[in-house]
Structures are given as structure tokens and as C-alpha cells.
């Protein structure tokens, strides 16, 4: 779930308020978004993908953490903005879609093929 909106990094662009599909954020009094409805967060990471300032952190747990993680620690581990970086969004980056050639996968119900040029990605 969403755990952090970094006051230090946020540029108050409202992007997360706009794109969150479950309406988790509200614009705060000073423009920095508030996590107004954390329990509605579906841990889809889309807000992180759209945040131009790497100011958000979605913990992979689908329930709130007892305490929000330490922002400096996350930054130190390179986790702030890591999803946006991996999908290649942001100026000067190569779109992840351009590189998204997955491993060979079995068809539903089948075994893994030994090797196949027909690389696909499947959800």
C-alpha cells in the first residue's frame, strides 16, 4: 500500500491525485497530497509510475504497515522512483516496453518449452 508522500520531493503537481484509480489521495492544504483513504489502495503502483518527482513509495504489502518505512533508508536503497525507472518512464530513459521480451512460457496447462523464439509476456 501507499506509505509515503515525500514532502521534500513532492512538486505539488496533483498527478497522483488525478491518476490513482481508487482515489486514495486528496490535495493537502499546502498542495502536497495527503493519503486520505489508504485502505482503498490496491497496491497497483500506478501512482509511482506517474510521479515525476519520485516522491511516492508503495510498500508491496497489501495492508498498511504498522509504521511507514524510513524515507532516507528507501532513498539510500534506490527504491524511491524505482518502478518508474524500471518501466523507462521519465526524460531520457528507454521505454521498458521496447525491451519487454520475456522468457518462453508454457501455454495454459502445458509444460515449459525447452526453448522458443516465440517469446511472449503473459500476465
Amino acid at each position: 500500500m501507499i506509505e509515503i508522500v515525500s514532502r521534500e520531493r513532492c512538486i505539488a503537481c496533483d498527478k497522483c491525485v488525478e491518476v490513482c484509480p481508487t482515489g486514495v489521495f486528496e490535495r493537502g492544504p499546502d498542495g502536497v497530497p495527503l493519503i486520505a483513504r489508504q485502505s482503498d489502495c490496491q497496491t497497483c503502483f500506478m501512482c509511482e509510475a506517474y510521479c515525476p518527482a519520485d516522491a511516492l513509495f508503495v510498500a508491496p504489502r497489501a495492508h498498511p504497515l504498522p509504521e511507514p518505512p524510513d524515507e532516507a533508508d528507501l532513498a539510500g536503497r534506490g527504491l524511491l522512483g524505482s518502478y518508474r525507472r524500471q518501466i523507462g518512464w521519465g526524460h531520457g530513459r528507454t521505454p521498458g516496453a521496447l525491451l519487454a521480451v520475456g522468457p518462453p512460457l508454457p501455454d495454459a496447462g502445458g509444460a515449459v518449452p525447452a526453448a522458443s523464439p516465440a517469446n511472449v509476456i503473459i500476465s
Binding site: F45, I87, L99, G102
Partner: peptide
């Protein structure tokens, strides 16, 4: 290849 195809799998 998995990492390139599905970055979110590894989150």
C-alpha cells in the same frame, strides 16, 4: 528476460 518483461513482478 523476466525482469525486462515484467518489472512489477519483482517489486
Amino acid at each position: 528476460a523476466m525482469r525486462l518483461a515484467q518489472p512489477n513482478f519483482f517489486l
